[in-house]
Simulated scan of single mutants.
Amino acid sequence: MDHEEVLRLFDRQMRREVPADHPGVRVEDIGTVVRQSGGPADWNGVVFSDIDESTADAVIAEQVRHYGALGVEFEWKTYSHDRPADLGERLVRAGFVAGEPESLMIAEVAPQTGAVELAHGLRLVDATDAAGIELAAQVHDEAFGTDGSRLKQQLLDRLAHAPDSFVMTLALAGERPVSAARIEFAPGVDFAGLWGGGTVAEFRGRGIYRALVAHRARIAAARGITYLQVDAMPTSRPILERLGFEQLSVTTPYVWKA
């Protein structure tokens, strides 16, 4: 994989030309940043910036004013190859709180589509309705120990307005959901994003994560997608590296609360 070429394609398709999550939000390219704005339950934030040392502080202040007027918190999603080099430090000085860095991992779809055999009693099913989204949110709560209510509402909105933009998959042990992950699509792009992949503690280490990657890769292949993209936590990065994913950058969320 040509890292520089793929990263340029990723920046153009997934950041500079990113579409809105659903009709209830808007994406604006105002020259210095590309940002998404919506309501309190939506994902609000900056996905791309074209700034340097001389313009960064003023542009950051402008985004704080914009989202502050909307009364919502927002995220500035930075990448390690963004300019200026001290962008993260400038965001912290402006009142943002840094989240955990994640590795931008990318792989070609075709090599990821091979079958993965699950342990006896486990199976994968795609969730196609609100009940499936509810089960996925329950798994999220149990696996990550966080409140998945906001994510659930975002996915329900997408299910209502753009059902082809994602596929949610559950891993079931009998009838109990024990893992959940989704794949997200944007029209006209070469990348599909893999998100979630949380597994409840007692079922970890059984190959579910690998099976979910392969399952979603086959969904991507059926849609003609070229690359899979993951924002990987340290726990999942080694698994993805063994599968052939390569790190192209590091992404860090900086959150500003209204």
Rank of each mutant, 00 (worst) to 15 (best):
D2M: 10
E4H: 11
E5H: 12
L7C: 09
L7V: 11
F10S: 11
R12V: 08
Q13I: 12
M14A: 15
R15L: 09
A20H: 10
A20Y: 11
P23S: 12
G24I: 15
G24A: 14
V25Y: 13
R26H: 14
T32K: 11
V34T: 04
D42S: 04
W43I: 05
G45M: 06
V47H: 10
I51A: 05
A56I: 01
A56P: 15
A56S: 07
D57G: 12
A58W: 06
Y67Q: 10
K77E: 05
T78A: 00
Y79E: 15
G88C: 10
P101T: 01
E102R: 15
E102P: 11
E102Y: 09
S103W: 02
L104H: 04
A107M: 03
Q112C: 14
G114K: 01
G114P: 00
E117S: 14
H120D: 10
H120A: 15
H120R: 15
T128K: 14
A130T: 15
A131E: 14
A131W: 10
G132Q: 06
L135V: 08
Q138I: 14
V139I: 09
A143W: 04
S149E: 07
K152W: 13
Q154M: 14
Q154V: 04
H161D: 13
H161R: 12
A162I: 02
P163S: 02
D164V: 07
T169E: 10
L170V: 03
L170F: 07
A171P: 10
V178D: 11
A180D: 04
R182H: 06
R182W: 03
F185Y: 07
P187Q: 06
V189N: 11
D190A: 15
G198M: 00
V200F: 09
A201D: 15
E202Q: 07
R206K: 06
G207A: 05
I208T: 03
R210A: 04
L212E: 04
L212S: 02
V213L: 02
V213H: 07
A214R: 01
H215Y: 03
H215F: 03
A217Q: 01
I219N: 05
I219Q: 05
A220R: 01
R223G: 01
R223Q: 05
Y227S: 01
V230P: 00
D231A: 08
A232D: 00
T235E: 11
L243I: 03
F245K: 00
V255W: 09
